Amino acid sequence: MKAIGLYKYLPIEHMDSLVEESIEKPIPSNRDLLVKVHAISINPVDVKVRSPKEKTENTLKILGWDACGVVEAVGPDCSIFKIGDKVYYAGSITRQGSYSEYQVVDERIVGKKPLTLTDAEAAALPLTAITAWEGLFERLNIPLHHPEENRNKSILIIGGAGGVGSAAIQLAKLVGLTVISTASREESKKWVEELGSDYVINHYKPFKEQLASIGFEDVDYIFCLNNTDQHWQSMGEVIVPQGKICSIVENSEPLDLNVLKSKSVTFVWEFMFTRSMYETTDMIKQHELLTSLSQLIDAGKFRTTLKEIISPINAENLRIAHQKVETGQTIGKIVLEGF
């Protein structure tokens, strides 16, 4: 089978930063599915893992953590899926990735593809939607099934136009929150408004004054999807006393937790690979939330965040996609389709 990956961690402009090889098709074991991959999407984690570093791999390291495809074989312990099922998933960061014609993935982190989406539209969603879902409903503990509890409550989503933000805006609106997103360019402002954001502010300007100008003294929740270090002080200023902040972006400098002390604010991380990385006892929750997401999509309550399709899936096109994501200015998701 064809697979794209790396041996050396090089700048994306280098021809050997991503290379294509023919390797053996994997065999599923335990609760693994063997999936014939139809479409993949590119996330910032792809770029981060591939970024230059003093390290080499002895065998091809296949990147990629989003895919949509068809189940071709199942492991002996599988009970959820069967051969022929159309699926979508974000995989595990500790295993070989989705830049390949076939991939093995644990069925507990896989969902059935939404019926109303194309392969490319579905491939755009898993990693970012799982991150948004877990961040909102599990880390921030925002009520999912009782939207009346969210009435008159607000959330600030920092970095609303990216993949996770695009999913988080839709989910937050579905459960009745007032959504304030940050965006700096006209095209990104337009995108977050199309997704349902009630207000848009600029993440390059102080939050407090901008929130005051639209009638908010503070916000009940903050979901930080961009530069935790840069926004730390501002988040502390605008979070409501006893409010909650969740971030997905690791800090470069030590965070001063005293900023949150007087308000008794909760701060929590979200990392969607935690469950698969540690094979937690509740790993199947990712299957369950992807199933719920498919139902929302097929009911017309959630839309894909796909913005661009590149075809076919090969090393050259993946290098192009990585370069686009590296700019930090992509809106929605980039998907590659077809080998």
Rank of each mutant, 00 (worst) to 15 (best):
A161H: 05
M277P: 00
M277K: 12
I169S: 08
L117K: 05
E194R: 06
I331A: 10
E288K: 13
I62R: 11
R139N: 08
F81W: 08
D106M: 12
G163L: 04
I40Q: 01
G332W: 03
V175Q: 03
D16Y: 11
V104T: 15
I222W: 08
I334D: 04
E21S: 05
V45E: 02
M277R: 14
S294V: 03
S188I: 00
T266A: 08
C68M: 11
V240F: 05
L10K: 10
V37N: 03
F216S: 00
I40D: 01
A124H: 09
G196C: 11
V104F: 06
G300A: 13
E308L: 13
E209I: 09
I109G: 07
S154Q: 03
K285M: 13
A167N: 12
A321M: 07
I23C: 02
E54N: 14
L174M: 12
E270W: 09
E101T: 07
G236C: 07
I239A: 08
T116K: 13
Y221L: 00
K244I: 01
S197M: 11
K113M: 15
G165C: 01
I239M: 10
G176L: 04
I158P: 05
P143L: 11
P44C: 03
R95V: 12
S51V: 02
I331G: 10
V70G: 01
L144E: 13
I320Q: 13
